[in-house]
Design a protein around this nucleic acid. Structure first.
Lengths: 218, 218
DNA sequence: TAATATATTTAGATTAATCTATATGGTGCT
DNA sequence: AGCACCATATAGATTAATCTAAATATATTA
């Protein structure tokens, strides 16, 4: 059984990886707030278990097996964050520390139930994609609108999950598929987004709405 | 911060305590499936931390402080069990192992939210009382009907939580406060209970209903 | 290319929780 | 009272995860 500590190292390695999948021991130790010798020694252990490739003085690289294990921890983390916000009334910025603990619960059923109850969300409350049951992370050309930066020009290409009430809301604002708009402002207070479209007045969309709207950044 | 291991020892000590609060090292070691020296050595640690009274060759007794800490772990365990059943569609006999893990989550808010969402239940899905926020365990002369044994003769004295739909259901069956009845059968399959009352035909009540009905055993 | 700075590794110690094997205290029986 | 038995305690080792201090490798830069 994978210990919580190992799961945390895997998660860190996954998120720190650069384009080639490389992570330095220093980065790793900093990210986890442990000493460099600790990170180094754990790297050797993870190598022995087949989670990563360790060669003296070389950057660390997760194996396929390691990446899958890591993605599954991240899946549990993000599902939990989403559940805390959607079903338990937490604010999106209060969930991290709790999710950090719950992600280690050993019970596939527990996370499957969360997933079901939320109707299989594709993104967490911060707009990060939730890996699927097999650890595949949806590599798509779209992101939730909530993940965009001020000034981005985007086209609206779909919804993360479609509910009647959301469709009605979008309809009411005359927002349609393939429409093009610009992210004018992101409110620091509540992360609501102001968009601008040709031929329409400026429009403010709540964080919840932006989480569900998938856009392609130009 | 109290480690998970310590929390598990406290929980075991609390539940194993006899009328005088005494627990032997052997019982403790058996309950937690550790060796006797392990239990002994942890007993010394818990003594140092003020959780229990340890005297060589004498039975272990939790201090007031220890009992409170233990009750709070049990509170989290039972709240979690209830939440899994009520809000996440688990069966009442599937929840123990998961709750065993979640009870250690460090986040008062998380458990407060559970409590609120369930409308402050007084008993867990197995009919055991849920200690309050201060670690007080309701010592009452009534128990949920679901905690009764076949053959018990009881009087109906109240509800654990009253919802309109439950009241309507009871009304429909002409069940009223202070009525006296006998627990005739407990179905092994779904823990539904058949009761018998003077002047009424036999009646089957579901586990959910029995959980909410508080009775005094004669 | 040599000197220096930075990153990485090794050595050795620490802590919490556990174990096995052994020793000792307390209780009950003859 | 003495002996045997069971519960309890001690000694000493082990494991995972961590640390500090010191040594060594790689990279940078004069």
């Amino acid at each position: 059984m994978i210990s919580e500590t190992v799961e945390n190292y895997l998660k860190a390695l996954f998120t720190l990886a650069d384009e080639e999948g490389k992570v330095s021991v220093s980065e790793l130790s900093q990210c986890l707030e442990v000493s460099k010798p600790s990170a180094n020694s754990m790297a050797k252990t993870l190598h022995q278990e087949g989670f990563l490739i360790y060669k003296k003085y070389k950057p660390l690289v997760l194996t396929k097996y390691g990446r899958k294990a890591a993605a599954l921890v991240i899946r549990r983390h993000r599902l939990t964050e989403m559940f805390l916000v959607e079903k338990m009334g937490f604010a999106w910025d209060e969930v991290h520390d709790v999710a950090e603990q719950i992600e280690h619960v050993q019970s596939p059923m527990f996370f499957e139930r969360m997933d079901e109850l939320m109707d299989f969300p594709k993104f967490d409350p911060h707009g990060s994609p939730i890996p699927d049951r097999d650890g595949n992370i949806v590599e798509a050309d779209w992101v939730p609108l909530s993940a965009c930066a001020e000034g981005d020009s985007v086209s609206f290409v779909g919804l993360a999950q479609s509910s009647k009430s959301l469709l009605q809301l979008l309809d009411g604002h005359k927002i349609a598929l393939n429409q093009i708009f610009e992210v004018t402002t992101i409110e620091p207070f509540d992360q609501s987004i102001v968009i601008n479209r040709d031929g329409f007045p400026a429009l403010t969309l709540s964080r919840q709405v932006c989480n569900e709207m998938l856009v392609r950044v130009k």
